[in-house]
Amino acid sequence: MADIAPVTPAEKGRLRSVLAMLWADKPAFVAAIFLCVVLVCALIGPALLDAVATKQNLRGRNAPPFDLSKGWLLILGGDALGRPLLARIIVAAQNTIAIAAGAVVASMIVGSALGLVAGYSRGRWAQIIPRLADVIMSFPSLLLAVIVLYMLEPSAANIILVLAITRIPVYLRTTRAEVLEVRERMFVQAARVMGASDARIVFRHILPVVLPTLLTIATLDFAFVMLAESSLSFLGIGIQAPEVTWGLMVAQGRPYLTSAWWLSFWPGLAIILTTLSLNLLSNWLRVALDPQQRWRLEMGGRKNG
């Protein structure tokens, strides 16, 4: 998922070893390729297919899937207005991915920043911030989302905001727990003795140790947030038509469940495959970013002990 822009010779070797480690875990490799495809769909799909995806075609109403007589775009069937499902799924990838990514990035930045403060400082904030996480955790998050979205406009920005707030405690607690432990290690003590400032210790010495855990959690959380957004859209308080996400597509297909199952089935499958890939990739990341377990992958997967 990480884009590595300037490839220097040293970086090239690193990229190759990352790819080799990914190749060693075949399910994760497939998952990574699938996620790249989804990402490409999300980035350029709407620009290419928006016209096709919104063009209504009465002859293609609820067209059954796997019927090539109406053209390859209707291979997954057509929706209630005859719009090709394949094109709509590709276009909907953008909103689905963008909302989840926005919520994950926002909650990760805020949560880990608060966690760094709560773990590193010994002052009053170290007491108050964890309580804040407890309060958020004790909220029924879906209920909070319903109230807020019902009150405000259910726009993409508000959905991101609500989802981000409910996920902050995850990063906050993890970061705090790790910082509390790393803070006492020798290299941090050494940096302090050598006169490093607090900011330098936190960002140069502690954050790099915590970051792998955060990335693993973020990958897993991406799946969770995607499911949450889909549920909200499904309940009708998430993204509103004519905007479209996969969850909303499942909801839109619901009235036609008995006559045209494919309307809800394909977008749901897209959700499932994406979250499954994220789970697989997160499992791989956990091993690949852990110096004590990385050998399993560097062995090239010949023996997974």
Binding site: L227, S230, G247, L257, T275, L276, N279, N304, G305
Partner: peptide, 30 residues
């Protein structure tokens, strides 16, 4: 670990953890 049973259990648990419940509900109803 790594045996047939482990692979099957891991595979199904991953799918279970990844599936949106509203979608499973709809598919089950159909």
């Amino acid at each position: 670990v790594g045996g047939v049973f482990d692979r099957i259990a891991t595979f199904f648990s991953l799918i279970g953890a990844s599936a949106p419940d509203f979608w499973i509900a709809i598919v089950a109803i159909v």
